[in-house]
Design a protein around this nucleic acid. Structure first.
Length: 153
DNA sequence: GCCAACGTTGGC
DNA sequence: GCCAACGTTGGC
């Protein structure tokens, strides 16, 4: 089992919205590295849900991979923001996974919280200029963050 | 709204 | 295949 961290702008799609809907296809990722991480994700993998570009950036809870990588439908939709004219059905460029709500944190784990935790000093997300929207997280990092969020994993 | 970091594009 | 220009991300 792998662990992941996925970023979302709450104005676009928030953790609360995931809780309400139950599950959501994670479409619109247009970065090859992030895409490759999604292709490696398996059903049941746990996902740290990160709110970015907002008042209080940080991790708000845990989601779960509920469907493994499949073709991101938005790449074929000319009207979509994520349309990719260079992608064909025979050779699609972009994948997505489906994520499901799993468990909300008791408290937000903010960026300063993450930075203050010695066990997390190697996290990809904390590296300057990191912009990947999907990154792998080690089991130890996952456990430490769940602890900071007030849930036991 | 600024700006640093970084991926992508395209001319050569 | 190099690299400058450009666009995007995301914290502050």
């Amino acid at each position: 089992m792998h662990h992941w961290l996925m970023k979302s702008e709450p104005d676009e799609f928030s953790f609360q919205e995931l809780e309400r809907k139950g599950q959501e296809p994670w479409t619109g990722v247009r970065n090859y590295q992030a895409r490759n991480f999604m292709r490696a994700a398996k059903v049941g993998d746990l996902v740290l849900f990160y709110h970015s570009n907002c008042e209080e950036p940080g991790i708000v809870g845990v989601a779960r991979i509920s469907k493994e990588a499949f073709d991101d439908p938005t790449q074929f939709e000319p009207k979509s923001d994520y349309y990719d004219a260079k992608s064909t059905k025979d050779d699609p460029r972009w994948s997505c996974v489906e994520v499901s709500f799993h468990q909300a944190f008791k408290r937000l784990v903010s960026l300063p919280d993450l930075r203050a935790c010695a066990a997390l000093k190697d996290m990809l997300i904390l590296r300057p200029g990191n912009r990947l929207s999907v990154t792998p997280v080690t089991a130890a990092e996952f456990k430490a963050i769940a602890g900071l969020g007030g849930i036991r994993k």
